[in-house]
Structure formats: C-alpha cells, structure tokens
C-alpha cells in the first residue's frame, strides 16, 4: 500500500533521512524503531508532506505522492498522529475531533449532524473524551491528549494510519493503554505504520519492523525475529 524508494529528507544542513526504502502492506502493522534523533520523525514527516523530500519516491496505492501538500496527502487517506500530538489546544475536544473529519464535512451546513455517527464511535472507544467534549484540548492531561490525537486521526477514516511516538511523555501505565489501543485497531484490519522509541512494545504490536539508525535502515524483518535479535536490544541499552 505504501512504499518508499531511497527516500532522502532533512532540514537545513545534512540529510536526516539518508535513502530509506520501506514497505507497508495493506492490513499490516509496521514499526519503525530507533533512538531519538535517528531520523524516524523526519521520515514520517516526509511521508506526509510536512517537509518536502530531497530525493526518492513515496508511492501510495501505486502513485507517487512526493511534492503534494500535506493536506492533499491527508485527503488521499494517509493520516498522521504527529509527535507531541499537535492538538488544536484553544479549541474544544469535540471541535478537534470534527476537524479530523474536515474534508468530509460541509463547510457551512450542519456539520455536527453529518459527523454524529463517527463522533459516537470515537466516544464509545474513549469514554473520557465524551466526558470532556466541551473542554479546551489544551487543558486535558497527557493521556487524554494522546487519546484525542488518536480519535482525531480515526475521524478521518484513514486508509493508512501513521503514529509518531504515541508514547512520548506519558507515564508507563498510560503507555500500556496506548499500546492496547493500537493492538485493538490492528485487530480491526487497519493498516498502521508505527514509529516508536520503545523497541519492545513496538515489536510486540507489529508484524514487521525496520530498525533505523542515523537516517538509514540497519535491520529489517518480522517483528518476532527482531525481538529475539540481541543486536536490537544492544542499540538501546548499550
């Protein structure tokens, strides 16, 4: 479904992503694992069009999407839950969720009614959000913010979900909850690309994984085989 060929990207100066080729098959969950600064976030941003790749291709459903603006890529069905969540903090929880479905909703018409089915679905999944639907997103706690970010992404009914560091800044107990949610999403047949610093958990929920170090893929394979690979663990605890 998604395939990158020799993708290069970066901010000013050197490339942070130095020729990465990955593949995500329909219905699978693929993990990108690597330490902070390895280039995972840059890769993910390049996939979504937030930064323009300096070279290589990104094929989504067989079409090259390099150079399209992020909004266009989002409309084609790739949804990113960005690192650090990036909620619309002055807006309410419900408005955040509605914005997730923005391309489907009427600009001036009764948008709440159009989206009511999806909203109900999200509130069933995350009852905490239903309780706080009229609160400002910025006033939520860290765990609730992450749920909202996930919910906003699901509202888009994406074909491919990309999760960038969903565990970032959360207490361990909440991290477990987030991973449980990811597992259940995967069980519904959703295609997921997960970028994660927690190697163990990421390998547990995914089918395949790429180990990324300094902008390149150093190892790839099924998650089960990587989890047994001592080299992977070494990269983390030295």
């Amino acid at each position: 479904m998604l395939k990158t060929e020799n993708l290069r990207a970066g901010y000013s100066g050197d490339d942070a992503v130095r020729g990465i080729s990955i593949e995500v098959a329909e219905g699978s969950c693929v993990a990108l694992v690597g330490a902070n600064g390895a280039g995972k976030s840059t890769l993910v941003k390049a996939l979504c069009g937030l930064i323009e790749p300096r070279g290589g291709k990104v094929l989504f459903g067989g079409k090259n999407i390099v150079g399209l603006p992020a909004s266009e890529i989002a409309r084609r069905g790739i949804s990113l839950c960005p690192e650090g969540r990036h909620l619309f903090s002055p807006l309410t929880v419900e408005e955040n969720l509605l914005l997730g479905a923005y391309p489907r909703l009427p600009s001036f018409g009764p948008f709440r009614r159009t989206a009511s089915g999806d909203l109900r679905h999200i509130y069933e999944m995350f009852p905490r959000l239903a309780e706080r639907r009229f609160q400002q997103a910025g006033s939520l706690s860290g765990g609730e913010q992450q749920m909202l970010a996930l919910g906003r992404m699901l509202m888009a009914r994406p074909r491919l979900m990309i999760l960038d560091e969903p565990s970032m800044g959360l207490a361990p107990i909440l991290v477990k909850e987030i991973f449980k949610t990811i597992s259940s999403l995967r069980a519904t047949g959703m295609t997921i690309l997960l970028s994660e610093q927690f190697a163990k958990s990421a390998l547990l929920v995914s089918d395949r994984a790429y180990i990324i170090e300094r902008g390149s893929v150093v190892l790839e394979g099924t998650s089960a085989s990587l989890a047994k690979n001592p080299a992977v663990m070494e990269a983390y605890l030295g």
């Binding site: 361990p172 927690f198 958990s201 547990l204």
Partner: peptide
C-alpha cells in the same frame, strides 16, 4: 521499563 516499555513478563 521506562526505556523499553516492556510489560511484566518481558
């Protein structure tokens, strides 16, 4: 646990 996010059995 904080680093690898391993659960208890792991």
């Amino acid at each position: 646990e904080a680093y690898l996010g391993a659960d208890d059995t792991e």
